[in-house]
Amino acid sequence: MRAARGSGAVSGTRGSGAVSGGVLSERPSWRRLWSDRVATGVMFATVLIALLPVLLIFYYIFREGLAVTNWEFLTQAPPFSYRREGGGYVNGLIGTLMMVGMATAVSVPLGILAAVYLVEYGGRNLLASLIRFFSDVMTGVPSVFVGLFVYTAFVVPFGFGALMGAVALSIIMLPIVVRSTEEMLKLVPQEIKNASYALGAAKWQTVLRIVLPSALPGITTGVLLAVARAAGETAPLILTAFGSITITTALIGEPISALPLAIFDGARTPFAAGQARAWAGALELLAIVLVFTLLARVAASRSSISR
C-alpha cells in the first residue's frame, strides 16, 4: 500500500470510518481506487444505456401515435388501401378484446385450479413436480410454436377465427397463471388454514373461502400480467386469427384482426398512411397493456399477505 497524504475517509465507498493521521490515513493503492471508480462509472453508464430505449420508445410512440389518434381511429376500420389516410383499428380492438377475453375466461379458472392442486393436494409428489417443471418449461415455449400447434390441431379442421386465436392465447396464459398463483397460494400461512379446519371446514371450503380470498390480490396481479402478455402477442395470432381489415365478431370460420396483427401489417407497408395507423395502433395497444400492468402493481400493493 502506498502512503497518501490526505486524511478523511479511505474512500467514498466506506463512509467515514478513518481517522486523520496515523496508519488509518493510508489509502488503498492507486490501482484499487481507480478500479473501484471505473467500475462505479461503468455501472452508472449501464443504467443510462438501459434507460435510453425506454425514453426513446415512449417518446416516439406518443409523438407518432398521438398525431393520428382521434375518434375516427378508435371507432373505424382501416380503408381498403394502405395508401389511404383515415380509418382506424377498431376491427383489431374488437378482435383483441374478444380473443383475450375468451382466453382469460378459460385459462384463469384452469390455472388457479391447477395451482390449488400444486399447493394444497400435490405438494412434493411426482405429478405435482412434473406439472411444476413443465409449466415452467411452457412459459418458455416460443409463442409462434403455440400458433403452429393451434393451426395444425384446430385451424386445419375448423378454419381461422377468433376462437382459434383465443385457444392459442389461453395456452400462452395458462402456465403464467399457474406459476404466479402457486407462488401466491404458498404465501397463505398454514395457521389460518388450520384455523379453518379447526372450525370444521372441509378442504374445498377452506380453499374456496379462506385460501383463495387471502391470496386474491396476488393472484389478480399474476392474472393481469398474463392478460397484458396475451394482449401484446402477435405471432400466434398470425397462424390462428390470421387478420382481417373488416370488422367481424364471428367466433369461428372467419379470419379476425387483432391490434398487434394490424400493427404488424402497418409496420411492413411502405406507405406512410399505413405506417401512421400502425403508430396510433401501437399507442392504443401500449395503453391497454400498461393499464393492465399498472392495475397489476396496484393489486400487488393491496396484498395483505406478504413474504
Binding site: P189, E191, I192, N194, A195, S196, A198, L199, G200, A201, A202, Q205, R209, I210, P213, S214, S304, I305
Partner: peptide
C-alpha cells in the same frame, strides 16, 4: 373447537371471522 398459540384471524372483517364457522356449517 380449537384456539392456537399465535392468534390466527382470517384476513377478513371481524364479523366475517366469527361468521365463518356458522356459514360453512
Amino acid at each position: 373447537g380449537m384456539v392456537f398459540q399465535r392468534p390466527n384471524p382470517f384476513p377478513k372483517s371481524i364479523y366475517d371471522n366469527v361468521a365463518f364457522g356458522p356459514r360453512i356449517n
